[in-house]
Amino acid sequence: MSDNLWGYQPSSGYTAGADLTGYAVEATDGSIGKVDKHSDEVGSAYLVVDTGVWIFGKEVLLPAGTVKHVDTEDRKVYVSLTKDQIKDSPEFDKNKHTDDPGYREQLGGYYGSPGAV
C-alpha cells in the first residue's frame, strides 16, 4: 500500500493525464465495475467506480493509492481490495463527497486501517 493513500503508486503504471474513464475495475477477487470519473490531482487522486448491478447501482470512491496496476491495453484498473472491502466502504454521494475533506478523512480511516488494504 502506498504511503500516500491519495496518490497513484509509482509501480502502478498510471501515467499522469491518462483518461481512465470507462476502464473496467478488478478487485483482488473479481470485477467490480467501471471507472465513471477519476482525478489525478496531486495528493487528492481517486477513482469513482460505478458498480452497476453488483451492489445495486452504488458508486464508490476509491483513493488512488488502492490502485495496484493500470493495464492500458486491456483498459483495466486493478485495485488491492476485495469485493467485500469495497462493498462495505463508506457510502458515496457524488453530489457532495467528491471534494469533501471530512469524507476523505472517513475513507482514509477505512482504507488506511489495519487489515483494510
Rank of each mutant, 00 (worst) to 15 (best):
L5I: 06
L5M: 11
L5P: 05
W6S: 03
G7N: 15
Y8N: 02
Q9V: 03
P10L: 09
S11Y: 11
G13P: 05
G13K: 00
Y14I: 02
T15N: 10
A16G: 08
G17A: 01
G17Q: 07
G17C: 06
G17E: 06
A18E: 09
A18T: 10
T21I: 04
G22W: 07
G22S: 03
A24H: 06
A24R: 12
A24N: 05
V25L: 08
V25S: 02
E26V: 00
A27N: 04
A27Y: 12
T28F: 00
T28S: 14
D29N: 15
D29E: 08
G30E: 09
G30W: 12
G30C: 05
G30D: 05
S31G: 08
I32N: 03
G33I: 05
G33F: 02
G33W: 05
K34E: 00
K34F: 12
V35N: 06
V35Q: 06
V35P: 05
V35M: 07
D36S: 12
K37H: 08
H38T: 02
S39Y: 07
D40Q: 03
D40K: 04
D40W: 08
V42G: 09
G43T: 01
S44C: 03
Y46D: 03
Y46K: 02
Y46I: 00
L47H: 05
L47Q: 05
L47E: 06
V48T: 12
V49H: 07
V49C: 06
D50A: 15
D50I: 02
T51R: 10
T51G: 11
T51H: 10
G52P: 10
G52L: 10
G52F: 13
I55A: 06
I55W: 15
G57F: 09
E59S: 14
E59C: 03
E59F: 07
V60E: 13
V60G: 06
L61V: 04
L62Q: 04
L62M: 11
P63G: 05
P63E: 09
A64D: 07
A64L: 09
A64E: 06
G65M: 07
G65R: 09
T66C: 15
V67I: 15
V67D: 14
V67A: 02
V67P: 11
K68R: 14
H69Q: 13
H69F: 12
H69N: 07
T72G: 10
T72R: 15
E73I: 13
D74P: 00
R75I: 00
K76F: 02
K76Q: 14
K76V: 09
V77I: 09
V77F: 08
Y78A: 09
V79E: 04
S80A: 14
L81K: 10
T82P: 07
T82D: 11
T82H: 10
K83D: 07
K83W: 11
D84H: 01
Q85I: 05
Q85F: 01
Q85D: 03
I86S: 05
P90H: 09
E91R: 14
F92M: 01
F92V: 03
F92K: 03
D93A: 06
K94P: 10
K96G: 11
K96Q: 12
T98S: 11
D99P: 00
D100S: 15
D100G: 07
P101D: 14
G102W: 04
G102T: 09
Y103W: 08
R104V: 00
R104S: 10
